[in-house]
Design a protein around this nucleic acid. Structure first.
Lengths: 366, 366
DNA sequence: GTCGTTGCTGGTAGCGCTGTCAACGTTCCT
DNA sequence: AGGAACGTTGACAGCGCTACCAGCAACGAC
């Protein structure tokens, strides 16, 4: 009777409270902290809400409480399937929570990232997931001043803003090289595209390994800022071959490039691994079913996303993780494309990571 | 001096208005409809906002205006790279707009879709993008009752809820089959995974084509509900070969499966296309650089996402499209994997689509 | 029996913004 | 010149919810 509806006919908290015979604030508490109510009122509010089909108005809640239940995610690309795996993990972990994901694409620009960060922060997100450790000074300052938990993903390094989850791309690249050295390869090329900070660190790892082995030769490196693709892998490999015809192995900065190299070898009738060995990076699904099967450095992308979101939500709700920096490690998945001599009983080269299946081998972050 | 800040120190519209020497409501208008202001005030507010680094509070705006600037997107999967292309298009089109994307994953469940739809609708989204045309009756009713524009994507069919953009999977499959028939193939197998409604319609198209040609044989069909992968392609092809050893071509419901079939053929030393022809679906990037290059049905996924978001935003802002249903068509990209006889001057088989590069060939939607 | 303590509940006062409508000045028409 | 029409501006009153604090009952300690 006296119940007045909003124009749009939506049910408000006040209606629920009235039907339940409690004050609006009590009804409000029911949705945020049911334990604070007596059992009697709790059930009354519950059934009133059900009966009316009440759905809270998030905008009003956000305005009144001065905070949102939004987790902001800043990633550099939607194209790259590395990020789609990470995202899948993030969405998965957030699905059963009250938090919703707000995604923004920095397009590999730290300036764009800074701009987006400013917008995100102004909306007082519950938490933030940002990619990598190479923010602008200004972004870094904003992140540090932010009053919400933050997780940096994709890699680990010194001075986390807050939490951090990833692995050492530098060490992973070194492990790839060590694997190739172990197979007797010496003239090892590097093929890289996009060259974002993480690919750059893989290149750094490659260079360090080659230098340490006294095998470094700049002609063995082909890198471009062009976005990656299978076709590009073939093209870059062609360039590499022109510069270094006596090549005996290729470290590809990602698996798409590796597949492109595989096809290009097939086109040129180069035998793999007899003439040239191939190793990729990320271990996408197709690597294991290519012919020959392709060696790759496995990274835990889905796990990274899922764990990042879980850690973040825990932190938002006051459950801070025991250790704020998590190294998820990597693992060299040795397959036909790099196995000249069958590796006998030597375990796969691994970085640190969950104890279940990885050999502990701490990556150095200095 | 007299300027009072909110506790958190955030700049409010009132501060901007004060600095600009106008009333808050005028400042408000500047952000929503600058043309309504005189040039003098416009520049004053603009510089005041810049100087203070003002960012509007979206929650307050949403609460006061009774609407949000959120576009809800319901897709069945984040894994499938078909959807990541669509999403890229959607995000791209929304980036320069005031609208933000809220993504939810139905996991191929129309019940889950219904649940998510209910939540979305309660927050009064500015618009909605939903996948496909197979909603539950309840979902359908909610969509029709929603007071925001809606775009259905990925396929076209009768009775759009509002707008619709996609192509006919049935016709696309028929076109693939027609291409194979044209190359002289008769024992054509079907390999499909996931079997969502759109893959199902591709299977329907395959069946119709085979029946019309008097070549239908249920043993030629291998389909599973398992999510797709390259490895699965090889496994399904193995099954198919066991059931129909005299196969001369395979229509794969997507490109991952096609790549798996390619590798499996290589493993079995089956010559492509001499012994078995392969055609995929979607024309992912790698199809053109495989060895042999793989024929596929090109679909305009990025374009679909971009156009859907653009149409939706236009509709939200009152610019309804001339035609609410858009057929983006498809195109059979003939490559080595299906070219027994070099196709001379015959144009590629196409569905309807943008005039620029596709041969108009309307798909029937009945 | 009094006092504090705890647990639960409600009143009040906004959160920051925009819808509505009225008021103003200017221009243009008759 | 008077008035209508338009463009521009501002005052006011919320949007639906929650933070904050006060109040009240019930209970235990002394």
């Amino acid at each position: 009777m006296g119940r007045k509806r909003t124009k749009s006919g939506k049910i408000r908290l006040a209606e629920v409270a009235e039907l339940a015979g409690v004050s609006p604030i009590t009804a409000s508490r029911f949705f945020r902290n049911p334990e604070a109510l007596s059992v009697a009122k709790r059930t009354r509010v519950d059934s009133a809400a059900r009966e009316l089909g009440y759905v809270p108005n998030l905008a009003a809640r956000a305005l009144a409480s001065q905070r949102t239940e939004v987790i902001g995610v800043l990633i550099p690309s939607l194209t790259n399937n590395v990020f789609s795996d990470v995202l899948r993990g993030i969405y998965h972990a957030s699905e059963d929570s009250r938090y919703s994901i707000q995604l923004s694409n920095t397009r590999y620009s730290i300036l764009q990232e800074e701009k987006l960060l400013r917008i995100f922060l102004a909306q007082k997100p519950a938490g933030l997931i940002v990619t990598g450790i190479d923010q602008t000074t200004e972004s870094r300052a904003m992140l540090e001043a932010a009053d919400c938990p933050i997780v940096q993903i994709m890699e680990i390094g010194p001075n986390p803003v807050d939490m951090m989850i990833g692995f050492s791309h530098f060490d992973a690249a070194r492990a790839a090289l060590d694997h190739l050295f172990g197979q007797g390869h010496r003239k090892i090329g590097f093929v890289g595209a996009r060259m974002d900070p993480r690919v750059q660190r893989r290149l750094d790892g490659y260079q360090a390994a080659m230098k340490d082995a006294g095998l470094f030769d700049p002609r063995l490196i082909v890198a471009t800022a062009t976005p990656t693709s299978v076709t590009l892998g073939g093209a870059l490999f062609t360039d590499l071959l022109a510069k270094a015809p006596d090549l005996d192995a290729v470290f590809c900065a990602n698996d798409d490039l590796a597949l492109g190299v595989l096809f290009e070898c097939r086109r040129r009738e180069i035998a793999i691994p007899e003439q040239i060995a191939i190793i990729g990076f990320n271990d996408l699904e197709f690597m294991a079913s290519a012919v020959p099967t392709l060696t790759s450095v496995r990274t835990n992308r889905y796990e990274m996303g899922r764990t990042a979101a879980t850690m973040l939500i825990d932190a938002i709700e006051g459950r801070r993780p025991e250790r704020p920096v998590l190294d998820l490690g990597f693992k060299v998945m040795e397959r036909q494309s790099s196995s000249l001599r069958r590796s006998d009983s030597r375990p796969a080269l691994s970085g640190t990571g969950p104890a279940n299946k990885m050999v502990a081998l701490p990556s150095s972050h200095d």
